[in-house]
Structure formats: structure tokens, C-alpha cells
Design a protein around this nucleic acid. Structure first.
Lengths: 214, 214
DNA sequence: CCTAAATGACTTACCAGTCAGTCATTCCAG
DNA sequence: CTGGAATGACTGACTGGTAAGTCATTTAGG
């Protein structure tokens, strides 16, 4: 028993990231309230006091964790449609693929789910997430939709509403994944669902009645 | 100061319902962990001890509250398509309307959101909800879809997947409503969103009138 | 050595759950 | 009717356990 799991290390640079990563995994498993600072510390291989060297409170850890996971998501999305050469339909296809990858990554998806669950207790963060992540995703999609409409590729529709309809199945797939898959044995392959979604969606917004796909 | 707010009343019959209603409103505002039994009691105009006359624990209150809000939802849904005379498209239209009403009722929608948020801590309840509410909603929709396909009204598609795509925007609208509307000032009218959804969805699954290409 | 990062025992606050006592209501005896 | 005894719904101070946050001490690393 006497063997100390690890000698105490001093890693001023790496700590904050390690702590937030441990925090994400712990919040993901138990939710905000049921997570103890000792849990996070143990997972990061550190004692509780160490967390307080870097963050002033549990809430601060939570907020920092959410912020740390904003940029990667946004960048993935924006990278997915950087290619301006493609047709609007192709760009939507790429977007669905990119979102599908995010939706399949349980660790990434945990963040919005936590924001959702804690919106009542962290209204400021909810507003922030609403604008910085969801707002950007919506603009991204409606930008592509408007381009397609201007180009005559898609019918004229309310781009803001249509963008929401485009994203809805992705969001539901993501939430489903984190909520029910750990609890039951018959998962629906998100890839199949999203392929069908793209097919139906493109058909429903296509400009001419006689099909759109080349 | 001496004035007692209210004389103590004895209402053995009405209490359980009043307690669950107070519990719903409190859980809705703060989430499960952050609500205190004293909060629920105060909202119900009762002392904390009284709750324990009717429910053995905080978790029991939560579970009872969820169960109490199952049946109304299911019955609303099933009533919405009871009319077997109509076309499948019309029945989908009625379903969207019914779901839209549920989605617009912030109190009702809070329940699935709480289930979602607490699925990790109440796996049994998550499974239960998955089967008794979501499962039933999915069968309802896929039943209508299959009837429409058999009738030649809709294209042949995977009914289970398509049903999920049909429900996704309703679910997202509901979650949006409870999460972001209290936090910002520019709500999207769910009615507009769902009307567009129905339009696009029906178009995407319609059998090709002009003998089009698959 | 010296500094500052890391530790973990300690303090403090909070809250689920308990239970001895209170009082509104009912119901019979006179 | 009436009053007072019995009932049991209701109360709220209290307990025990838990966990956030602190800080005097320890020790890695330069």
C-alpha cells in the first residue's frame, strides 16, 4: 500500500488544461451539482487544493470548461464549408458530415447538453452559448442556404427558419447519443439517420420539382 | 408580525397533486439538485415535513412528478390522430399541431428536459421515459408513415428513421423554448417553424406525382 | 537553499430526512 | 345542539452527513 501513486509534480503550464479535461469527464458523468471537487482533482491526479490555485470556485471551473470547448467546435464547423468552390448542396452535405462527427463524439456533445441542463442556474452562460455557438452555426447554415437561393439552386424560403430545420436532426441525434445510448441496447446509427436527413432535406428545398441530384 | 400567513389546513386528498405541481415548477427553475425540499414545501404553502408524509424522499418526488406528467402527453398525442378517416398527410398535419401545442407549453416541456438532464443520475427513469413516451410517439408517427406508404401517398422509406426526422424539429423547438427564451428577447414563433417543417417534410416524402426518377 | 506549487486536514455552510409536539377536524355522548 | 375527546394532518427545530472552500505545512525543482 505504501507506494504513492505518483510523486507530486509541479506543472504550472499544463495544469489548467488537465483540470478542465478532468472536469469535463466528471461533469459529463454526474452533472454539475453531483460532481465533487475531489472527483475532479482525483481524475486529474491532483489534490483538491490544487484546483483552487487555478480557479476560484466550482462554478468558475464549469464556465472555464465550457469556454475551452467552444472554439474547437466552431472551428470544425467553419472549416467544413471553407471550400467556396462547391455547390450549395455539396456544402450542406459537408456540413452534415461535420456535424455528424461532432454529434458522434460523446465528449464534445456533453458540453451543449450540460449548458442546456444548467441554463437555469447559469443564464449568462446560456446566453453566451446561444450567441457564440448556436448563433454562429445558424448563420453558417443560413449563409449557405441564401447562396443556394440566390443561385437558383434552392427554392426561396425563410433562411433563418430553414436553417433551424436543417440543424434539428443533428441536435436530436447528438442528444440521443448521450442520453439514451448508455441506457439501452438498440442505438440508431447516426450516420444512417443523417444521410436520410440530407436526402429528404435537399429534396424539399430543391428549386425544380423534377429532382435535384446530379 | 404576529399575523400567521395562513391557518394550517388539512387537505389529504389534494396534497399529493399540489406537491407535485410545486415540485414541477421548482425543478423547472433550478433543476433537480439545486431545489431544496423547503423550496417545494414553501411553494405548496406547506412545511417540509408534510412532503415526507406523502413521498419518502426527494427522488421519489421527482419520479412521481415525471410519472404524473406522462399520461397527459401521451393522451394528447394519441387523440390527435384518432380520426382514421383522414389522409396520412392530414394526420401528420394534426400531429404537428398537437406536438406544437405541447412544445409551446413551457410547464409540460420542462419534464422531458429534466429527464434529459438527469438521465445519468436516474437511468431507470430515462429508460422508462424512452419507452413510454418517446417510443410511443415514434410508433405513432411511423404507423402513419407506413399507412401512407402502403397507400401510395408517400415514397417508400425507412419508417423508423423518417419518424425521427419528423419529430426532431418539434423536440428542438420544445427545448429551445425552455432553454433560451427565458434568456433572450428574440424568440422564433414555434408555429411558423413547424408550419414550414410540415411543408418541407411532406414535400420530401411525397410520392413522385410526375413519375420522377429515384 | 529558496520559491512557489502542491497538499490534505480543517472549518463552515448547507440540506435531506426525522420526530416530538401542535392544532384543525370529526364525531359521538350527553 | 354542544362540548370535549380522539384522530391524524401538519409543523419546524434538530441531527448527521456531505462537500465547498481555506491555509499552515510539505516538497519539487531550479
Amino acid at each position: 500500500m505504501g507506494s504513492p501513486a505518483r510523486p507530486r509534480l509541479r506543472r504550472k503550464e499544463a495544469r489548467p488544461g488537465e483540470l478542465l479535461s478532468a472536469a469535463l469527464d466528471t461533469f459529463r458523468e454526474k452533472g454539475f451539482a453531483a460532481t465533487r471537487m475531489d472527483d475532479i482533482a482525483a481524475r486529474a491526479g491532483v489534490s483538491k487544493g490544487t484546483i483552487y490555485l487555478y480557479y476560484p470556485s466550482k462554478e468558475a471551473v464549469f464556465e472555464a470548461m465550457v469556454r475551452a470547448n467552444l472554439l474547437p467546435n466552431i472551428e470544425r464547423m467553419e472549416a467544413a464549408i471553407a471550400d467556396e468552390e462547391r455547390s450549395s448542396a455539396d456544402r450542406l452535405r459537408l456540413l452534415v458530415t461535420a456535424f455528424g462527427e461532432i454529434a458522434g463524439d460523446a465528449r464534445l456533445v456533453a458540453v451543449p447538453k450540460l449548458v442546456l441542463a444548467e441554463a437555469g442556474n447559469f443564464p449568462e452562460m446560456a446566453r453566451f452559448y446561444r450567441h457564440e455557438v448556436i448563433g454562429r452555426a445558424l448563420s453558417l447554415v443560413s449563409g449557405v442556404l441564401e447562396a443556394g437561393m440566390a443561385h437558383g439552386e434552392f427554392r426561396r424560403l425563410d433562411a433563418a427558419l430553414t436553417a433551424r430545420l436543417f440543424l434539428a436532426p443533428v441536435i436530436v441525434a447528438a442528444l440521443w447519443q448521450t442520453t439514451f445510448v448508455p441506457v439501452e441496447d438498440a442505438p440508431v446509427p447516426p450516420a444512417d439517420l443523417l444521410r436520410l436527413h440530407l436526402d429528404l432535406f435537399l429534396r424539399s428545398i430543391a428549386a425544380d420539382a423534377s429532382g435535384g441530384a446530379p
